[in-house]
Simulated assay, not measured.
Amino acid sequence: MSEPALAPRNALGGVIIVWAAALIAAVAIGIFVPDEWRVTWLLLGFGGAVLLSFVLQLWYGQTKGFIFRIAVSTTGALLLLGVVSAAFALAALVPA
Rank of each mutant, 00 (worst) to 15 (best):
R69G: 03
G14E: 01
N10D: 15
P34Q: 01
F88V: 02
A26W: 04
G14C: 05
L78K: 02
K64V: 08
F32A: 15
A89T: 13
P8Y: 07
I24Y: 03
I31F: 15
S2I: 14
V72N: 04
L80T: 04
A11F: 03
L44W: 12
I16Q: 02
T63S: 13
L56N: 01
L6M: 15
L52M: 08
T74I: 13
A5C: 07
A21F: 01
A91N: 13
P34S: 12
A21K: 00
A71N: 06
G13R: 10
L58T: 15
G30C: 04
L6Q: 12
A87Y: 08
P4V: 01
F54S: 02
N10P: 03
A91S: 15
L56G: 00
F68Y: 05
L52N: 03
F54E: 05
T74F: 06
I24D: 03
L90S: 13
S73T: 06
G82R: 07
A49K: 05
T74D: 03
A26R: 00
R9P: 12
V72K: 03
I29D: 00
P95H: 02
W59G: 05
W59C: 02
W19E: 03
V94L: 14
S53E: 00
A20N: 06
I16P: 05
G14H: 00
V72G: 04
Q62I: 09
I29R: 00
A49N: 11
E3N: 14
S53M: 02
N10K: 11
A87N: 08
A87S: 06
L58Y: 12
D35S: 15
A28Y: 10
L6T: 11
I67V: 14
L52P: 00
I16L: 13
A89V: 06
F32Q: 10
L81P: 00
L51A: 11
L79P: 10
W19I: 03
A91V: 13
L80V: 15
L51V: 12
I16G: 01
L56I: 05
F54Y: 14
T40N: 12
T63L: 04
E3R: 14
F88R: 07
I17D: 07
K64Q: 09
I31Y: 15
T63D: 08
L42P: 00
A11H: 07
R9F: 11
L58C: 08
P34T: 08
M1F: 05
I16R: 03
W37V: 13
G30I: 00
A22T: 03
V27I: 14
W59F: 07
G82A: 12
W37T: 07
A25T: 11
A21C: 01
R38D: 07
G47M: 12
L51G: 05
T74Q: 08
I31C: 07
A7R: 14
G13W: 04
L6P: 08
I17R: 11
P4E: 06
V33D: 08
A28H: 03
Y60M: 02
L52E: 04
P4S: 09
